[in-house]
């Protein structure tokens, strides 16, 4: 499997990372090196093996579905690059 610049551009788009056109070639090469390394996994016989979901067998704890926290709008917004009138502000989303 070889990654071309078009695929690299598509992945960058999916990851929401802007990559300049002239950098796509190098990126595709990096992907190919890494995916070439990962390719070894195809040798392993995984027939009938369950994919791991959690490394330590444990049952997630249950708790009543109630509000236990909140009411800290100032703290929640304190690190926002642009907070206005109690909201996170972003560029216009809907025309």
């Amino acid at each position: 499997m070889s990654i071309d610049t078009e695929t690299a551009a598509r992945v960058a788009k999916l990851a929401r990372i802007k990559v300049e056109d002239e950098a796509l070639e190098g990126l595709a090469q990096d992907f190919n090196t890494i995916l070439g390394f990962i390719e070894q996994l195809q040798e392993v016989d995984v027939e009938g093996i369950e994919p791991m979901t959690g490394v330590t067998p444990m049952r997630l704890k249950r708790r009543p579905d109630g509000v236990t926290d909140g009411g800290m709008q100032d703290k929640v917004l304190s690190n926002a690059p642009d907070a206005r009138e109690g909201f996170f502000a972003v560029p216009k989303v809907v025309e």
């Binding site: 996994l41 195809q42 995984v46 093996i49 369950e50 791991m52 979901t53």
Partner: peptide, 8 residues
């Protein structure tokens, strides 16, 4: 596949 290998 990687998660299955992890099980192994």
């Amino acid at each position: 596949r990687a998660r299955k290998v992890r099980t192994l």
